[in-house]
Structures are given as structure tokens and as C-alpha cells.
């Protein structure tokens, strides 16, 4: 990635955040100015899921061609995804303290990000427990695939089941649902999409950097041997 692109990503995200914080967003029932979290919290959660998907994707590629570079990419994607899911959890939790009254409510989306954190944690524990490189690559790729096929149960099925079971407990609807979108004005939506785009490019840049470091140190290490 060229250096002007890095600067462009930095400026883009800075601009999005300044506009996001300063732009009037109109009246949103029950949320008010707290709705501005959507500009950075939702992109972070999106990246956490995207990174998880990419980790599985490179895992599959590794299983097909046994190229160690794909394993390094898979691990780099997972590392960044872990960082972003921690950020999403923290920002969401602070937001929940002021919107819903407590830091953690076991709302369906909170449950799903919690499970994502658990899966990432399990993935890294598995990697650290395997010493032979090829074996580590194969087994962690397999694990990321198995973990990925269970994720739809949390993202699509569980929220439906849980809200169906606890209708009147006062737990408010998830942040990004049909309701939230309905009240989102066009200007707000543009900023949100711009933020999503900026964060995605930030992720791509970080991912390239991280996997290049990984591949270089792997080559260096195997040359010494």
C-alpha cells in the first residue's frame, strides 16, 4: 500500500469522526446523541466479524494448498479481529452503561460478541498449544471453520429466539435493527457508510502490514534453520 493511501485513510477516518460528532442528527426516540456511537462501534463489530470470516477463508486456502503464507494470513486476520472485537465490546459496554443502565445486560448482540471473543480466545489457545508448524496451521484452520459454521446460530437465530422469550424485560432492541434503521436520516446514513468504508480500509492496511511482518519473520526464521 502506497504511503499516500495511509494518509488518506487517516484523514478519511478523522473527517468521518469529526463530522459524526459535530453534525446534527435530528431527533431519535430513546437514543438522542447517544446514537452517534453507530459511527465507530458498528464498524468495529463489522470488522470483528469480517476478520473472523477472513481467518476462515485463509484457513480453507491453507487446507487446499498447504502454503504456510495462508496460515500466517489466517492468524493475522484473527489477531486483528480479536483487537477489534475487544474494542467493540468495550465501546458497546460503556454505551450500554449510559443507555441501558448497566455495563452488561446479556442482550442477544452482547451474547454474540461474547461468543466471538471466546472463539478467538480458544483459537489462540489452540495455536499456542501446537508446536509443529504444519500441524498448528492445519488444526487451527479446521477449528476456525468449525467455529465459523456455528456463528450463524448466534447472529441470526439466537436473537430471534431470545427476544421472543423475553419480550417485556425492558432489554432494549439491538443497536442496528429494523427500528434503528428506520429512524436513520439520509445524512446520518452517509456518514455511517463512509465510516464503514474507512474502517474497512484501515483493516485492510493493518492486515497487509501484519501478514507481511509475519511472512518476513517466517522466511527469516526458516532461512536460519
Amino acid at each position: 500500500m502506497k504511503s499516500w493511501m495511509k494518509i488518506a485513510i487517516g484523514l478519511w477516518i478523522a473527517a468521518v469522526l469529526v463530522i459524526g460528532i459535530s453534525m446534527p442528527i435530528g431527533y431519535i426516540p430513546g437514543l438522542g446523541d447517544k446514537a452517534r456511537i453507530i459511527y465507530f462501534h458498528v464498524p468495529m463489530s463489522w470488522l470483528a466479524v469480517l476478520a473472523f470470516f477472513m481467518s476462515m477463508w485463509y484457513g480453507i486456502k491453507y487446507l487446499r494448498n498447504k502454503d504456510m503464507k495462508n496460515d500466517i494470513k489466517s492468524a493475522s486476520a484473527a489477531e486483528l479481529g480479536f483487537a477489534f472485537s475487544i474494542l467493540a465490546t468495550l465501546t458497546g459496554s460503556i454505551w450500554a452503561r449510559f443507555s441501558w443502565g448497566s455495563f452488561w445486560n446479556w442482550d442477544p448482540r452482547e451474547t454474540s460478541i461474547f461468543v466471538l471473543l471466546l472463539i478467538y480466545g480458544a483459537y489462540f489457545s489452540l495455536r499456542s498449544a501446537l508446536e509443529v508448524e504444519e500441524r498448528r496451521a492445519t488444526l487451527s484452520a479446521v477449528y476456525s471453520i468449525v467455529a465459523f459454521v456455528t456463528v450463524p446460530f448466534f447472529v441470526f437465530i439466537m436473537p430471534r429466539l431470545m427476544t421472543g422469550l423475553h419480550p417485556g424485560e425492558g432489554s432494549p432492541a439491538p443497536i442496528l435493527n429494523a427500528n434503528g434503521k428506520m429512524y436513520m436520516e439520509a445524512s446520518m446514513r452517509y456518514v455511517f457508510y463512509a465510516s464503514l468504508l474507512g474502517f474497512t480500509f484501515l483493516y485492510i492496511w493493518l492486515f497487509n502490514l501484519r501478514s507481511r511482518i509475519g511472512i518476513l519473520s517466517y522466511n527469516n526464521h526458516s532461512e536460519i534453520e
Binding site: L126, A129, L139, T150
Partner: peptide, 23 residues
């Protein structure tokens, strides 16, 4: 089958299984 190849088998097993079994 996955953990049988790993080092810390006993502790790793519930750690790996729990997220998969949670649904």
C-alpha cells in the same frame, strides 16, 4: 480429535468445545 494433537489437552478441551457447543 483436534486436541489429541495438542500439548495441554485436558485444559484445552472445554475451552475449545464451549463456544462450539453454546448454540
Amino acid at each position: 480429535a483436534i486436541i489429541s494433537k495438542a500439548n495441554s489437552k485436558g485444559t484445552l478441551y472445554p475451552v475449545l468445545s464451549f463456544p462450539i457447543l453454546l448454540p
